[in-house]
Structure formats: structure tokens, C-alpha cells
Amino acid sequence: MTRVAELLAYPLKSCDGVAVDRAAIGPEGALRGDRTYALVEAGVDPERASVSGGGGYVNGKSEPAIHGLSAEYELAGPPDATPTAVTLSRPATERAPADERTFPLPDEGDALADWVGEYLGYAVDLVRDDAGGFPDDRAARGPTVVSRATLATIASWFEDVADATEMRRRLRPNVVLDDCPAFFEDRLFADHGEGVRVAVGDTALIGVNPCQRCVVPSRDPDTGAEIDGFRERFVRKRRETLPEWTASDRFDHDFRLMVNTVVEERSWGDVLAVGDEVTVDGVVTVDESGTPVAGADAAE
């Protein structure tokens, strides 16, 4: 019986995650507290910035030094992962000494930005969105899903990746499933115009899109050191191990892994929990945002 093994939120985008036992679905379908805060280059409008690298977000795609920061959080409390304080540690650089500091939030957001900017060598702003957060996929803001067996399999492809836990830190999912085969999550998307309804406990997620990967999984989550040839090996092994159930016109290249989801408004406020049973309820017709079309219970 497939079940939820881990729930993770990333209160400060591109920094460490935090494991929780219960997680509420917030406005716009994101886990409450996930990516609530983000760092951007000073003066950049986060709504217009690109998350794909070089577009204003200070993230792992554009700034390898961000991996050198470690973060621990004080949270609003279950099931809300919104941070009320973050403790950041940074290594020594030519620009700044090694340091650790706790920043209550939101009161010391500007101080946090100044401290990180000192480490990076350029000015940054800390921005906040309590509604949908700052996910990479702004259309499918629901929890991202992968299986533990998948993480273990991918970790085995690379000598420099210790285990499934390290691969999970590189891929940064919200929901990790257990008691299912590797690449089970590939069952959770279909063709364009379709979504897959997935029951997680009493909550329905709509699996929409296999996540297109970037440079981040190739980098050590603590140091930013990159594995040479990561993408090429990943693509080759992904192709070699591709299950027959992955067939979909959304899976248009082999550098995709994990599933982005949408949560219908009627499920905002629901709570996911470790141990919840997970069942696949079938394919539904969806609009361009991934939301099921009213009156269309199943795709033709």
C-alpha cells in the first residue's frame, strides 16, 4: 500500500528543507510555509523575475554559493511551516567571515538580506509571499511528489551521491512516497489536457507535469561542488530504466523527474500527514492551469 513517508517544506527558497509530520494546503494549493521567503537581487520584482537562472532570483541555478548557507527554522507550528525565525550559517569567504545568526521573521528580514549580501558580495532583498510562495512552477503550485525507491535508484547511478537522502536533498520534493516501485510517480501524469487525480488521505492532488530538472541536482547540497557529466549520465540511465507507464506527450525529454501537482480550491486547508495512504483515482480533463474542467470527471 503506497503511503506518504516524508513531508518536506522549504521555508526559504533554495535553502535547506525541514521535515514535518503534518502539512496544510495553503492558498493557491502550495503547502503552507513552503517557499514563503526567497532571496532576489536588490530591486528585482519577484513576480517578473525568472526562476530559470540569471533572472533575478538568488537560487541554486544562478548562484552556486547559495549551497554554502545552511538553514534551520522555527516554524509557526503544525501544520503550518511558515518560519517565525531562521538560523543561517555561512562559511568564511574573502568577503566575509564564517558566521551564524538567528533572524526573527518578518521583523529582521532586512538584516537577513544584508547578512546574506555580505556573504555573496552583492546586495539582495528578502521577499515574502504568504499565499502561494515562490515555486519554480507558478502554474502547478501544489506539492511535488517522488518515491523513495526512485531516490535510491537515482542515487545508485552516481558514486558521489551517498544515498537516497542525499538525492532527496538535491531534488527537493515536498512529498516522498514509500511502499511503491521506483518511478511510481511517473504514473501521476498523463498527456497534455489531462491530469491524474491522486488521493493522499482525504485530499485530492492533480498530477500534471513531470518536473524538468536543472543544474541543481548535479551539485552537492552543502558545498555546491558539481558532478561532471551529471546530466548526460542521468539522461542515459533514465532512458535505460524508463517504465512503460511513463508514456506521455508531456515527457518530451529524459531530463525530467518528480511530478508537479495542482490542488483544487475546495481542498485548500486540507492537511497531509506522514503515513497517509496514496491511491491513483484516474485521469481527468484539465484546463491550461492544470485544474479539472467542471463536469469532466474523466478524460475521454
Rank of each mutant, 00 (worst) to 15 (best):
V145F: 02
K13Y: 07
F230Q: 01
V271C: 03
V208G: 01
W157H: 04
V284F: 00
A225C: 00
D136L: 10
T93W: 00
C15W: 00
F189Q: 06
T84L: 13
V278N: 05
R48G: 13
R141F: 01
H192N: 11
N209F: 11
A38W: 04
G68D: 12
D99M: 08
D270F: 08
T36Y: 02
A113P: 01
S62W: 09
L12G: 07
V235Q: 13
G193D: 05
E226P: 05
A5N: 09
R169E: 15
W157G: 02
E300I: 10
A155H: 01
V286W: 00
F251C: 13
V175M: 06
D249T: 11
T150L: 08
D178H: 04
A296M: 03
G201K: 07
D179S: 15
L126E: 01
A182C: 08
R239Y: 07
V127Q: 03
G121F: 10
D125Q: 01
D179F: 04
E265F: 02
L120H: 00
C180K: 02
T84H: 07
K61I: 05
G109K: 01
C214G: 02
D252T: 12
A152C: 01
P181W: 09
T261H: 12
P46Q: 06
G60H: 03
K13V: 10
G53V: 03
E72A: 15
K13Q: 12
D107V: 14
E277Y: 07
E288V: 13
P135C: 13
T291E: 15
V286Q: 08
K61E: 05
E244F: 13
G56C: 02
S156V: 04
K237T: 03
A162D: 14
N174T: 01
V198H: 02
M1W: 01
S147M: 11
F255E: 12
R197G: 04
R238P: 00
V116C: 09
T87P: 11
M1V: 09
D130Y: 05
C211H: 05
E288W: 08
G77I: 06
N260A: 13
R90F: 04
V146R: 11
F189H: 12
G193Q: 12
L120G: 03
T82N: 12
V271Y: 07
P143R: 01
E6H: 14
T223W: 06
L205I: 09
N209Q: 15
T144H: 04
V262Y: 14
W157A: 07
L188S: 05
E6F: 11
T82G: 05
P46N: 13
T150S: 15
